[in-house]
Nucleic acid binder design. Structure first.
Lengths: 233, 233
DNA sequence: GTTGACAGATTGTCTGCGAATCTGACAAAG
DNA sequence: CTTTGTCAGATTCGCAGACAATCTGTCAAC
């Protein structure tokens, strides 16, 4: 019967709670660098700045803690997570593995629709790479990774990758800031989409891994020289 | 200077907070089946049964929620997570991928010490498989997976696998309950340890994947027939 | 049988409070 | 001058109580 489009009526049951909004706010604040790695996050400050009670703040912090975005020590409170060079390396290693998996599965089982979406995502990123709108660059690239993860059809891999991406944006070592890296990056992800569209799992996996490994090299180099982590003061 | 063994003096900074103890309790309660999938977890009940205030309960629940052990809907409260057959399938797919990664990396970079630990873990599991102490069986097998994950030397993979294992124990579809599966299981993990000890990454990875895929077959079959999930009533 | 209203249960959130704990400063002792 | 001891301030930890918002089932009315 007329239930073909029924699910579109769903009201966003989510976001109804204050806590989840606080959570999103804090996540964005951390990602955007408002709070820097190593910096303390003091309950009462957050209460005032966000305008909610301690309950909501504390519960939101527990979630971020579980996600690895903040670390908290008993009786000292939470601080924004920071990473050693070795941890950054490991982060990229596992990310390469997981995105490689996505590429492979996508090429194997991806729907025609998902593939079209992926290609559009690459095109959008390409266009953004021509201009110099940093905002658009990040957004289109994030979208590409979202589509890539989605296409693999595995909710757990999506969750894990989201978690990894959050920690990477926190690092603020965008490999795209490296001169000459941007066009190369475009080429790489186009290779990925082409391999997936062609339905070649091994090539897609290899392309994904290659892409992340290249990004990792730049990121680790930056992490070593910059040393903007810690943020002791 | 005499700092060679200094770190052993560290006091367990952890576990100082009530919240973390509540968290562990609940995790265990869920894993042991005290709370079944689909069952509601009512704050005040938990307060009484555990003997702590609502604050601690709620914050612990937020962590478990982030781990995927419980799901909560606004104004309805948290329920123990339950999984569709498709989700179980996906769970094992990604688990195979991650443990395969562990096997490969372990074989590549594992220390002599870690390898010895791994072999001891296999022996312990083998011995447990001879007896019929269900408790020991689970414990030794869990230990084996811990050592395997540890040996890969990647903290993120360890985290992710822990998360997956937690959800699987919640499922209570121990593939070991299948008649004949146990000795086969022992053989499989011995193959893993042998490949790692021999330093053969590809073979180790394949053995890991094979092992999980076999377990998955049994688990999914059980999940389909049993249907003890949902627990609507 | 459908609709509507109502009551009970439960969660979401805020607030005040006291205890426990960490931290840095400052004085006392060597 | 360095080490040690003490103390006060800041902050988290956890509890209890309160109230609004929301969900759920029931039961009467149509």
């Amino acid at each position: 019967m007329g239930d073909s489009k029924a699910q579109n009526l769903q009201i966003p049951r989510r976001s109804a709670t204050l806590r989840s909004m606080v959570e999103d706010n804090l996540r964005k604040a951390i990602a955007s660098g408002t709070f820097k790695p190593g910096q303390r996050m003091i309950e009462r400050d957050l209460c005032e700045r966000i305008g909610v009670g301690r309950t909501s703040i504390r519960e939101a912090l527990r979630q971020l803690e579980a996600e690895g975005l903040v670390v908290s020590y008993p009786h000292k409170g939470p601080v924004v997570a920071s990473f050693s060079a070795e941890e950054v390396r490991q982060l990229y290693v596992i990310r390469a593995e997981l995105e490689g998996f996505c590429g492979r599965e996508f090429a194997r089982h991806g729907s025609r629709e998902d593939i079209a979406k992926l290609i559009r995502a690459v095109d959008a990123f390409d266009r953004a790479a021509q201009g110099d709108d940093q905002e658009a660059l990040i957004e289109t690239k994030t979208h590409f990774y979202d589509v890539l993860a989605q296409g693999a059809g595995n909710i757990y891999v999506t969750q894990f990758l989201t978690s990894l991406h959050n920690r990477i944006t926190l690092l603020r070592v965008s490999s795209m800031r490296q001169p000459g890296r941007l066009p190369e990056s475009v080429r790489e992800i186009r290779l990925i989409s082409e391999a997936i569209a062609a339905g070649e799992p091994e090539r897609a996996e290899a392309a994904c891994k290659q892409h992340i490994e290249n990004a990792a090299r730049v990121a680790i180099a930056q992490a070593l020289t910059g040393q903007s982590n810690d943020a002791e003061e």
